[in-house]
Design a protein around this nucleic acid. Structure first.
Length: 259
DNA sequence: AGAGTTGTTCAAGC
DNA sequence: AGCTTGAACAACTC
């Protein structure tokens, strides 16, 4: 479910809901230690996203660090909250709403020094205004690895996942197997700018949308994409090739994305 | 019902 | 040092 747009959307929403409030933090299954009031009852000062990482900052307490991984979910409801459904690692309850974090791969507290070290190992995030894209381009041109792999590396760019990497490369007509060191500055610029726009659109619409003039969503799965999971190229009609890159399936139109 | 998946880390080895 | 591979973890849709 989550690429960067999901996490940023949640961070904005939760920021609005929780900042300045005293949060009740519980761990229904007891699989996350919030014991001894480490966070519980503390004032929420900020909610922040960087790439796919979500951070809740508290007054005079460690931060809560969430990473949803491949399967994690964030469920929101009004207080009073009902019984937790599924693997709810942590529940955050404010005055009017509560949030359940289901099945995250990371759910932990971090000191401020640990927060700094987490953020420092992430690459620039197209959805953050403090992003420095030059750092990403420097990393890319330093490597012979395929661009399609580098775009998925969170220490190169934070927030891009498997669908966005496929779609960005198709939209900018770059072959995923192009070695990073051969990516032109112009192509990188275009990919970066496109990522900024698409991720922002995704956060706004709560769905990955990479096609122009997307019609309203019909099903629950609301993603609207060009070649991800498809068999034919919408631009030229030729067959889409799929193969594994960085342990994930990537799609390419060999005609529109020449090597 | 079972396969597939919008992710990451770690360790070991080349 | 740069890179590759595999295992482990998890929730939901079709």
């Amino acid at each position: 479910m989550p690429e960067g747009h999901t996490i940023h959307r949640a961070a904005r929403d939760h920021h609005r809901m929780f900042v300045g409030q005293r949060l009740t933090v519980t761990s229904p299954q007891g699989r996350f230690d919030v014991g001894a009031g480490r966070i519980s009852g503390r004032i929420c000062e900020a909610v922040e996203a960087c790439g796919k990482h979500l951070l809740y900052h508290f007054k005079a307490a460690p931060s809560l660090h969430i990473h949803l991984g491949l399967f994690g979910r964030i469920l929101k409801g009004k207080v009073p909250a009902g019984d937790p459904r599924g693997e709810v690692r942590v529940r955050l309850a404010g005055e009017s709403h509560h949030v359940d974090i289901n099945g995250p791969t990371i759910c932990e507290t971090l000191s401020s020094a640990e927060v700094v070290s987490l953020l420092s190992r992430l690459g620039p995030d197209p959805l953050r205004d403090d992003a420095e894209p030059e750092l990403a381009y420097a990393r890319i041109t330093r490597s012979r690895l395929p661009v399609g792999q580098l775009l998925m590396d969170q220490s190169v760019i934070a927030g891009i996942g498997n669908i966005y990497r496929t779609e960005l490369l198709w939209r900018q007509r770059v072959h995923p197997e192009l070695p990073g060191k051969d990516l032109s500055a112009a192509s990188f610029e275009a990919i970066w700018q496109d990522a900024c726009n698409l991720l922002a659109l995704g956060a706004k619409r709560n769905a990955i949308i990479t096609v122009e003039n997307a019609p309203p969503a019909r099903s629950r799965y609301r993603e609207r994409v060009n070649i991800f999971g498809k068999t034919d190229c919408p631009a030229c009609g030729s067959a889409i090739r799929r193969f594994t890159l960085a342990t994930r399936k990537v799609y390419v139109c060999e005609h529109c994305q020449p090597r």
